[in-house]
Design a protein around this nucleic acid. Sequence first.
DNA 1: GTTAGTTCTGTTTTT
DNA 2: CAGAACTAAC
Length: 674
Amino acid sequence: MDIEREIARLNPRQKEAVLHTEGPLLILAGAGSGKTRVITMRAAYLLHRGAAAQSVLAVTFTNKAAREMRGRVSMMVRGKGNGGPIISTFHSLCLNILRREIEHLGYRKDFTIYDTGEQISLLRNILSDIRFHDKTFKIESVLERISRSKNDYVSAAAAASPEDDKIEEVTERLSPKYHEALRTLNALDFDDLLLFTLRLFREHPAVLQRYRDRFRYLMVDEYQDTNRVQYDFIRMLAGERKNLCVVGDDDQSIYGWRGAHIGNILDFEKDFPGTAVIRLEQNYRSTGHILQAANAVIKNNGKRMEKTLWTAGKPGPRVCIFRAADAEEEARWVADRISMIRFDGNLRWEDFSVIYRANLFSKPFEEALRKLRIPYCVVGGTSYFENREIKDLAAYLKIIANPRDDLSLLRAANVPKRGLGATALGRLSKFAQTQSIPLLEAFARAEEISELGAKTAESAEEFSRMIGRYQAVFQKRRVMGDSFKALVEEIRYRDYIRELYKTPEAAMRKIENLDAFISSLAGYAVEEAAPTLQGFLETLALSDLMEEKEEKTGSGVTLISFHSAKGLEFPVVFICGVEEDILPHKKSSATADGVEEERRLFYVGITRAMKELYITYAGHRTKYGKQSGVNPSRFLDEIPGEVLQRLNHETPDADDEERFARKSLAHIKAILGE
DNA sequence: GTTAGTTCTGTTTTT
DNA sequence: CAGAACTAAC
């Protein structure tokens, strides 16, 4: 691919962004403005200009974005013999750095990464350890606080209510114990990956300097989603050179609730004096009316960088608003519309999407679509990783990889049952604690624990012997798949699953999952240049496996939340449940910032649509079993009347008639043509 | 150690 | 209303 010719085809703003290579650069990339194209081309251009591939670092949030970018860059630099630039997520980049450097911080190199589920069970263990039996709070909210404070530095905002006070108090008690526990377990949570790297950079300037010398060109995608820790990390890495290019759209910042700091993008110019700001406002995705609606809505936000999307294309049909009596009618109407439009627009089911505020709203749509035999897929819900069989077996692998990972040992020890119940495990843990040894060692020395019965002790010892054996077996890295298979056989896990799930179908699904898991390890062991069990567990923890699954489900009409829809596009979009207390959500409408983020959510939804946009709401909605009247969202009033078309059952609109006329014409032509 | 019955509580999600 | 999480009784 000839990069110069490619660049010549860009619009002026895009070209400017690609050619600006030195010094801080802020690319404000409006929705659908060809952002990915620009940053991949910019990366390729840097190499083309002679930068070493390994000196260009692009950071993304998701594996999917990283993979996509990698693919597109490699198309452009293929045959240059240079290898590609480093394209990585924040988390895997930090993980790679820590694997090399964590000993500077006094940790062992074979640390384990804990996911949310493991964080929660760790907190549960701590609670029962300190005999804290108050259950007037949710453990998840404590975890949220902990995570928030690790993303934000501040220990959560001022407590707003008594429950908040309570959670704050509990968090303060638990947090130090939680971190202590992680340390003895030789484990890091997701937030730690970033935080530790930052600490490493702060405390070891020589190490930081090495990375600064190496990464001479930095790019950050979705910059509006970065939190404060990520900001500091990037800033440190950029150093004095400040060859930092950030790409994002403040109007699409929708993750404030989990620590994303919109100030990062708003204040970028201030933080990096001499920043060049480039606005990409030409939109290649949506028709004019849709963009007008989007612009008009987002204009109502106070804190933003002024942008106006425009298109060289057609205005297209107007945005339709439909008021349904209730949720069921809303869903039926949407399903009807879909089947009708698909027919005359010659579209595929994949071209449609239904977007809503919360996943629980998918239900009525699923039903209505099923009734019309329209295929659909729901994005979101439980992930592959949450599955019991995967978690169980991963616990075995984890204890084999990291002998100090007591938490995984606790999970694996009695699954399938081997006579090591809560009492026995409690005694083993106590012993480990008093002797200050890892739990696995306590298992090996179970004989010494007088409170344990002979049978129980033998069972524990046998378990530790088995883990020891597999530690050796897994050293043969190329055949780890076989080792894993042998392990699953030895513990008779399949039988356990068959017994646990009474219906053969459910058991079958689980077994399939399990087999897929085994073959993914086998595949990893063969494909990876230097496979290790640890390495496999990392790819698992930093996700990748479940994404393969997601892509498979992508057939039929897509039912999806606003948040998950970001970055996607569909020819026809239905935005549903656009009512007060849903959008803006009740819990966000208390503060001005909250409402603004909700408005951005709506904006994200609107800008997903390429050709046709429908917005629906209901007059009544059944909430928690109770029927109640609801009001349309305040955001609807922000869409100018001239781009709107209000629909109801009785009066089909002008566009409808036009559609009907087109359809008839096409029909006649077809007949004449035959 | 399991299972049936009961209470409770309802956004958004990536790594 | 429905699903999760917890409790009490086998």
